[in-house]
Computed example of a mutant assay.
Amino acid sequence: MKKCPSCGYENPNNDIRCPECGSFYSKIIEAIEEIVSDEEKHSLRGRYQRIINAANKKAAFNEEWQAVKAGIDKQGWFVIFVIFVFVFWLIAIVL
Rank of each mutant, 00 (worst) to 15 (best):
F61S: 03
C18V: 06
E63H: 05
F78L: 12
A59V: 13
P12N: 08
Q49P: 02
A70F: 09
I83Q: 07
E20T: 13
I16F: 09
K27W: 07
Y25M: 06
I16S: 10
P12M: 05
E33H: 09
I52R: 13
N56K: 14
V82P: 02
S23R: 07
A54N: 01
R47A: 15
E10C: 03
E64K: 14
K41P: 00
I35G: 01
E63W: 03
W77A: 00
E64Y: 02
G71E: 13
A70P: 04
R45H: 08
P19D: 04
F81H: 06
C21H: 06
N14Q: 15
Q49G: 00
E20I: 11
N53Y: 03
E10P: 00
V36E: 07
I16C: 03
V82Q: 12
L44N: 12
A67G: 13
F78W: 02
N56M: 07
S43P: 06
N14H: 14
V82R: 12
A31F: 08
I72P: 00
Y25K: 07
K74Y: 00
I28H: 08
I80D: 00
V79L: 11
E30V: 08
W77L: 12
R17C: 05
A59G: 00
E64N: 07
G76P: 04
A67V: 10
E40G: 08
E20L: 11
E30T: 10
E33F: 08
E34V: 01
P19Q: 08
I80G: 04
N53G: 03
I72W: 04
G22N: 07
F81E: 09
D73Q: 07
E34K: 15
A60S: 09
N56L: 05
R45V: 14
E33S: 12
R47P: 01
E64W: 04
Q75W: 02
A60K: 01
R17N: 10
N11K: 10
I80Y: 06
V79W: 02
N53K: 15
K41H: 11
F24K: 04
N13Q: 13
R45T: 12
K57N: 08
Y48V: 10
E33V: 10
F24R: 02
E40T: 08
F84K: 11
F78K: 14
E30G: 02
N53S: 12
K27E: 15
A31E: 13
R45I: 13
D38W: 02
C21F: 05
G76R: 10
Q66H: 09
N11S: 12
S23C: 05
F61W: 08
H42F: 11
E64P: 01
A60F: 03
S37I: 06
D15G: 11
E39W: 05
I29K: 13
F81K: 14
N11T: 13
S26H: 07
A31M: 12
G46I: 03
G46L: 02
E40N: 11
Y48E: 02
N14F: 14
K58V: 15
K57F: 05
V68S: 06
E34C: 01
E40K: 14
N14K: 15
E33W: 03
S23P: 01
A59C: 00
P12R: 09
K57V: 06
F84G: 06
